[in-house]
Structure formats: structure tokens, C-alpha cells
């Protein structure tokens, strides 16, 4: 049961084929959902169109709870991508995991800290970018000395803390879920009694992981908008 990662080295940099494969699968699934849902659009929505519109309204609600739609509207597509990408990535590792020749290929891409921290850094970088773009360099710089100038060091720490918590929260939740699923699966394959004993915990934990995956996607999207509004809004 020893799993290895399909690592490779190219141009002096390392990579993990499993992560790249699963990211591609995630992208493909999200794209297909969106593509199929938006064929044959109608004014009176049916079926999948309802689902996509619900997601859009949901993200719109998240944005509206953080800033007004005039400034927040431009982040709508970012929020939709984040919530769908993370949600799909979270649940990909639930139904099964595939390992071939002792190498783990199929898992949740968000169970890898590199992926989640990349997403987190990207989000934080975007907040800084939009902070400078929409408020100007001067206002953006001043925000580090508000409300009190001596809190400046804390503000700097806050940025790094935000990045780390955003990425590691997601990684930790999904990773823990996969570890427990792996343990239950190991129990199921050990003996016939183990299989019988593992059915109920496996089902319970898969349901719970599904729930966690959805919640984490929502939290990731929510925090994206919260950090964004902190940088973009003038009255914080």
C-alpha cells in the first residue's frame, strides 16, 4: 500500500504528473458542466440551466455580502471559477483512488499543498493587484497604516497568515478526508469481516467528505471575496 508520486524533472524543475492530470480532469469536468448547462439557453430556465443560474446567484450573493455590485461585479467570474473548481476538485478523490504500479494517480488535486497554496497565493496576489489598480498606489499603501500606524507589522504578518490559512485550510480538510478514506479502504480490503465492518463508515465518511468539500469550496470563495473587499473598498 506504499504510494509514490509520479514525479518528474524537466528543465531543472520538479513536477507531479498526478497533480497535473487531476487538475486537467477537474478543469475538463467543470468546463463540461458549464458547457452542457448553457446549451439551449431559455428565458424560462429548465434543468441544468437552473443549476448554473443558481451557482451564479449564489456567488452573486457572496459578493453582495462583501461589496456593492458596482465594484464587486467584476469578480463574479472569478468567484464562479473558484467555487466550481474547488468543489469539483474536492470531490474528485471521494469515489475512488487509482494507483498503478505503486504510484498514486487519481486523487483530489486539492489534497496536495502545492496546488492549494498556489491557488491561495494567486488569490492574495490578485487582491493586491486590484487594490493598487482600483485605489491607486498611495491609498493602497496607506491601508497598511490603518487604523493605527503601529499595527503595520501586524498588517504585514496578516497578509502571509491569510495566504497560509487560505491554502492550508483547504489542503488540510481534503487531505484528512482522503487519509481517513484510505484507512477505511485499507480495512475493507484486509478481510471479509473488515469489508463488512467498513461499509457503514465508508458511506458515512464519503457523505461527510462530500459535505466538507462543498463547505470548503464555499469558504474558499467567501474568503476570496472578503480579502478582495478589504483591499478594494475604501471604507475599511
Amino acid at each position: 500500500m506504499e504510494h509514490k508520486n509520479p514525479e518528474f524533472e524537466f528543465l531543472g524543475m520538479y513536477g507531479n504528473w498526478s497533480n497535473i492530470l487531476m487538475l486537467a480532469v477537474t478543469t475538463l469536468i467543470v468546463f463540461l458542466i458549464a458547457y452542457i448547462a448553457t446549451r439551449n439557453l431559455k428565458l424560462k430556465p429548465t434543468g441544468m440551466q437552473n443549476f448554473m443560474e443558481w451557482i451564479m446567484d449564489f456567488v452573486k450573493g457572496i459578493i453582495n455580502s462583501n461589496f456593492d455590485w458596482k465594484t464587486g461585479g467584476r469578480f463574479h467570474i472569478l468567484g464562479i471559477t473558484v467555487i466550481m473548481f474547488v468543489a469539483v476538485a474536492n470531490v474528485l478523490g471521494l469515489p475512488f483512488s487509482i494507483s498503478y504500479d505503486g504510484v498514486l494517480w487519481w486523487k483530489s488535486p486539492t489534497a496536495d499543498p502545492t496546488v492549494t497554496l498556489t491557488l491561495a497565493v494567486m488569490i492574495i496576489a490578485l487582491t493586491h493587484y486590484y487594490g493598487i489598480k482600483m485605489k491607486g498606489m498611495k491609498e493602497y499603501g496607506k491601508d497598511f497604516f490603518k487604523p493605527m500606524p503601529f499595527l503595520f507589522p501586524l498588517k504585514i504578518i496578516e497578509e502571509f497568515a491569510n495566504t497560509l490559512t487560505l491554502g492550508l485550510r483547504l489542503y488540510g480538510n481534503i487531505y484528512a478526508g482522503e487519509v481517513l478514506l484510505g484507512l477505511i479502504a485499507g480495512l475493507a480490503t484486509s478481510s471479509i469481516f473488515g469489508f463488512v465492518g467498513a461499509i457503514i463508515p465508508a458511506m458515512a465518511w464519503q457523505g461527510f467528505s462530500l459535505f466538507i468539500g462543498g463547505i470548503q469550496a464555499f469558504i474558499f470563495c467567501m474568503l476570496t471575496m472578503v480579502y478582495m473587499s478589504h483591499k478594494v473598498s475604501t471604507n475599511h
Partner: peptide, 22 residues
């Protein structure tokens, strides 16, 4: 623990796929 070092390609792939999807 999994990697020999920092998986730069993973980072690039994440950014690439996320941007592509968006």
C-alpha cells in the same frame, strides 16, 4: 515529504488550468 523539492511545474499547471478554466 512527497517532492524532492518545490514542484514548480505543479504550480505552473495549477495557474495554467485555473486561468484556462476562467
Amino acid at each position: 515529504a512527497g517532492g524532492t523539492g518545490l514542484n514548480i511545474w505543479d504550480i505552473l499547471a495549477t495557474l495554467f488550468f485555473f486561468t484556462l478554466l476562467m
